[in-house]
Amino acid sequence: MKQRWLGSVLAVLLAAGCARVPEPPLRQGIVSLNPCTDAILAEVADPAQIRALSAYSRDPQSSSMDTELAAHFAATSGTVEEIAALRPALVISGNFTPPATREALARLGIPMVEFPISRTVEESVSQVRQIAAITGQHERGEALSRRIAAALARAAPGDGAAVPALVWQSGGIVPGSDTLIADLLRRTGFANAAAARGLKQADLLPLERVLADPPAVILAAGDHSGEDRMLDHPALSRLPGTERAPFNSALLWCGGPTIVRAADRLAEVRRQVTRPASQWSRR
Results as ranks from 00 to 15, higher is better:
Glu23Lys: 03
Glu23Asn: 08
Glu23Cys: 06
Glu23Arg: 00
Glu23Ile: 03
Pro24Lys: 07
Pro25Gly: 15
Leu26Arg: 06
Leu26Pro: 04
Arg27Cys: 11
Gln28Ser: 14
Gly29Asn: 09
Gly29Cys: 08
Gly29Tyr: 11
Ile30Gly: 04
Ile30Thr: 01
Ile30His: 03
Ile30Asn: 01
Asn34His: 14
Asn34Met: 07
Asn34Trp: 14
Asn34Ile: 05
Pro35His: 13
Cys36Gln: 02
Cys36Val: 12
Cys36His: 05
Thr37Val: 15
Ile40Gln: 01
Leu41Phe: 14
Glu43Ile: 03
Glu43Asp: 13
Ala45Cys: 07
Asp46Pro: 00
Asp46Thr: 09
Asp46Met: 05
Pro47Cys: 13
Pro47Asp: 08
Ala48Met: 00
Gln49Arg: 03
Ile50Val: 14
Ile50Met: 05
Ala52Phe: 01
Ala52Asp: 06
Tyr56Lys: 02
Tyr56Ser: 02
Ser57Pro: 00
Ser57Trp: 12
Arg58Thr: 13
Pro60His: 06
Ser62Trp: 06
Ser63Met: 10
Ser63Asn: 12
Ser63Tyr: 10
Ser64Gly: 07
Thr67Arg: 14
Glu68Phe: 04
Glu68Asn: 09
Ala70Val: 01
Ala70Glu: 05
Ala70Pro: 00
Ala70Leu: 05
Ala70Tyr: 06
His72Thr: 12
Ala74Asn: 03
Ala75Tyr: 01
Thr76Met: 10
Ser77Asp: 10
Gly78His: 12
Gly78Thr: 08
Gly78Ile: 05
Thr79Cys: 10
Thr79Phe: 10
Val80Ala: 15
Val80His: 12
Glu81Phe: 03
Glu81Asp: 13
Glu81Tyr: 00
Glu82Leu: 08
Ile83Val: 14
Ala84Cys: 06
Ala84Leu: 09
Ala84Asn: 02
Ala84Glu: 12
Ala84Phe: 02
Ala85Pro: 04
Ala85Thr: 03
Leu86Glu: 06
Leu86Pro: 02
Leu86Ile: 03
Arg87Gln: 13
Pro88His: 03
Ala89Ile: 00
Ala89Pro: 01
Ala89Leu: 13
Ala89Glu: 15
Ala89Asp: 15
Val91Gln: 08
Ile92Glu: 04
Ser93Asn: 10
Gly94Trp: 13
Gly94Tyr: 12
Asn95Ser: 15
Thr97Phe: 07
Pro98Cys: 12
Pro98Glu: 14
Pro98Val: 08
Pro99Glu: 15
Pro99Cys: 08
Pro99Ser: 14
Pro99Val: 13
Ala100Leu: 09
Arg102Met: 09
Ala104Thr: 06
Leu105Met: 05
Leu105Gly: 05
Leu105Trp: 04
Ala106Thr: 09
Ala106Asn: 02
Ala106Tyr: 06
Ala106Lys: 09
Arg107Asn: 01
Arg107His: 01
Arg107Tyr: 03
Leu108Cys: 05
Leu108Ala: 09
Ile110Phe: 03
Met112Trp: 04
Val113Asp: 01
Val113Lys: 00
Val113Trp: 12
Val113Arg: 11
Glu114Asp: 07
Pro116Ile: 06
Ser118Gln: 11
Ser118Pro: 04
Ser118Trp: 05
Val121Asn: 00
Glu122Pro: 09
Glu122Gly: 12
Glu123Lys: 08
Glu123Thr: 06
Ser124Arg: 07
Ser124Gln: 02
Ser124Asp: 08
Val125Ile: 15
Ser126Asp: 01
Ser126Asn: 05
Gln127Glu: 10
Gln127Phe: 10
Val128Cys: 07
Val128Phe: 02
